[in-house]
Simulated assay, not measured.
Amino acid sequence: MTMPYPPSFQLQEKFEKLSFQYESQISEDSAISGCSTPSTPTSPIDFEIKIATNEDKEKVREFLQKFFYKDEPLNLYLGLITDENPRCMDLERFTLKDMDNGVNLLAEQNGKLIGVCLNGTFERGKMENFECTDAKFSKIVSLLDYVATESDPFKIYPGIDKAMTVKILSVDGSFRGKGIAKDLMIKTRELARQKGCGFITVDCTSHYTACAAKKLGFKLHYTLNYEDYKVDGKTVFRPAHPHKELTVYTQRII
């Protein structure tokens, strides 16, 4: 895969990307770049947030395997993860390649991983390349590259040269509605300021991700209807309702 700057799915990454209680039953603690089953908010709980390291890579992979990879709308549409093929190595490599960048966050309760917020920083005019061999995932990477080029959030922040991207924000289904995602985002903003970032961006491949971004105070910057994204004259993605578009949301933090 080749990616300029962040994601979705919240992957730059871009693909990796939200899902919360918005309007009817969208829970505020689902997946930023994903599509998870809404849940009813319950009382808050005690948990701690820490910065992830390479030593956390395998448990984060297992967490995403359970709560994110399979249900993300584009992954689901392409059948990227199935019972017969439960893992996509390119997807895992792409989402976990920067575990030691100092801005990835884990939420834990008594040592149990209950939420993740995978982030990254990117700078104006700099692009990243990702070599992808999986035919299905390559389609997603190409889409994200296209959106990165077309949307370029630096266009609306002319005086800023560095930003934070939320790639994946996902919470254990049994712990949603307890403020975990909100606290992960608060900590993400703190880290963004420490790293000299002027704004945060998130690519939303899911309708629920977009709802979550709005609830968290992000502003819509770019929209691409899936039916309008074509390769060789053919629409590439037709995910199930209500996921009809990929959106990019931003939030200025300085």
Results as ranks from 00 to 15, higher is better:
Pro7Cys: 13
Glu13Phe: 14
Ser24Gln: 09
Ser27His: 14
Glu28Gly: 13
Ala31Ile: 13
Ser33Val: 07
Gly34Met: 12
Thr40Asn: 04
Ser43Pro: 00
Phe47Ala: 02
Ile49Val: 07
Ala52Gly: 06
Glu55Thr: 06
Lys57Tyr: 08
Pro73Glu: 03
Pro73Thr: 05
Leu74Ile: 05
Leu80Ser: 00
Asn85Cys: 05
Asn85Gly: 01
Pro86Met: 00
Cys88Ala: 06
Asp90Glu: 10
Asp90Asn: 14
Asp100Ile: 04
Gly102Trp: 04
Asn104Trp: 04
Leu105Thr: 07
Gly111Phe: 07
Gly120Lys: 11
Thr121Tyr: 13
Glu123Asp: 06
Met127Phe: 12
Cys132Gln: 01
Lys139Trp: 01
Ser142Thr: 08
Ser142Val: 03
Asp145Gly: 12
Thr149Gln: 09
Glu150Gly: 03
Lys155Asn: 08
Ile156Lys: 09
Ala163Tyr: 00
Val166Ile: 15
Ile168Asn: 11
Val171Tyr: 00
Gly173Ile: 03
Gly173Pro: 03
Arg176Val: 02
Thr201Met: 15
Asp203Gly: 11
Ser206Gln: 07
Tyr208Pro: 01
Ala212Pro: 08
Lys214Ile: 04
Lys214Thr: 07
Gly217Leu: 06
Leu224Val: 07
Tyr229Arg: 01
Lys230Asn: 14
Asp232Ala: 05
Lys234Asp: 12
Lys234Tyr: 10
Val236Pro: 09
Leu246Trp: 06
Tyr249Cys: 00
Ile253Asn: 00
